[in-house]
């Protein structure tokens, strides 16, 4: 794993508390599963119909009837349950998932998220992302702070089509952590060696700096 992603993943795992039911999105969020403390009782939900995702199977024990939402072969943990897709999204839409961690393409200062389509490119579909961001109790987005051209992905308003409006509770990037509150976007944490000025320079969105800012 490259350093930037590792930094984000290591910070993101701290969002998971003992006893939570959690949905991790496809891609970088999936890597968080490996970092959850071994003594935590956490159930990971897979929206295709499993609460209690286990590790990948050992070679030879792959079961085509047991996959995660990224279509990868997986196992189930003791105490897990299988269910159909309507039940799965009842659980999501009904607010029973404590935390959803998703990847992002853009986040706005009002907590809008865009992560499912780029106009002009092939549209693959939103899968369960729109349901997750509007249904989970808490939505955390993880992404790199700037794109490969050095432009801020943390914007005044999203240019890309939205996945959800005002749905993000917390954003974790490779520079900082932000919360979205009734009073707007707040910088709550900077990563080691990152100054508030550096965060301001790299961010198009307007935000205030928390009086309890954690800087390492």
């Amino acid at each position: 794993m490259e350093d930037v992603r590792q930094l984000i993943v290591r910070r993101a795992v701290k969002e998971i508390k003992d006893g939570m039911n959690v949905n991790l999105g496809i891609g970088m969020p999936t890597l968080i599963a490996n970092e959850i403390p071994a003594d935590f009782h956490v159930m990971l939900q897979s929206e295709n119909g499993l609460l209690g995702i286990g590790p990948f199977p050992v070679e030879g024990e792959e079961d085509p009837d047991l996959i995660n939402a990224g279509k990868e072969t997986i196992t189930e943990v003791p105490g897990s349950s299988f269910f159909d897709s309507a039940e799965s999204f009842a659980m999501i839409r009904g607010g029973h998932i404590d935390l959803a961690i998703l990847g992002g393409m853009e986040v706005s200062e009002t907590g809008d998220l865009a992560n499912w389509m780029i106009p002009g490119k092939m549209v693959k579909g939103m899968g369960g992302a729109m349901d997750l961001v509007s249904g989970a109790k808490r939505v955390v987005v993880i992404m790199e702070h700037v794109n490969k051209h050095g432009e801020s992905k943390v914007k005044k308003s999203c240019d890309l089509p939205l996945t959800g409006q005002g749905v993000v509770h917390r954003l974790i990037t490779d520079l900082a952590v932000f919360d979205f509150t009734q009073d707007g976007m707040v910088l709550v944490e900077t990563h080691p060696g990152v100054s508030v000025d550096k965060v301001k320079e790299s961010t198009e969105a307007s935000f205030r700096v928390s009086s309890d800012l954690i800087s390492q």
Partner: peptide
Amino acid sequence: FLSGELEVDLVPQGTLAERIR
């Protein structure tokens, strides 16, 4: 899809499940 031969209606997964249910 790009040639216009195929129509596509994208529906959020939970909404699709509930519409069928």
